[in-house]
């Protein structure tokens, strides 16, 4: 991301504003849904789904992952695998 034309960055700025609007809207939506008092399982699924969308937007656009070098993506794929193991292993052993 070090080589940028002026036009490219101006285009980025417009994207950032759209992403901000989407994040703010999703925050309001997830809070609104929590007032519906869904069953626990469904509530967890919906809340994590919305959070994942928000997180993906931040990583893709603010952290520029969509245009990032391959090596960064490989590091993150490896991290994601270890993260899932870390998250699920104790839980699987527990239940």
């Amino acid at each position: 991301m070090s080589e940028h034309s002026q036009e490219e960055i101006s285009k980025h700025v417009r994207t950032y504003i759209s992403v901000f609007a989407a994040l703010a809207a999703l925050t309001i939506i997830t809070v609104a849904i929590s007032y519906l008092h869904l069953s626990t399982g469904l509530a967890i699924a919906v809340a994590l789904f919305v959070a994942t969308i928000k997180g993906s937007l931040v990583v893709a656009y603010f952290m520029h992952l969509i245009s990032e070098a391959k090596i960064i993506r490989y590091i993150l794929i490896l991290t994601a695998i270890f993260f899932l193991v870390l998250l699920l292993l104790p839980a699987i052993g527990h239940f």
Binding site: T30, A51, K54, V59
Partner: peptide, 25 residues
């Protein structure tokens, strides 16, 4: 600035998951 930004977006990312997990569930 980009590195500081990456760190900052990560902190934002953590909160995006902390918020529903602690407050909404």
């Amino acid at each position: 600035i980009e590195a500081a930004g990456l760190y900052w977006h990560f902190v934002d990312l953590v909160w995006i998951f902390l918020f529903p997990v602690l407050y909404l569930l």
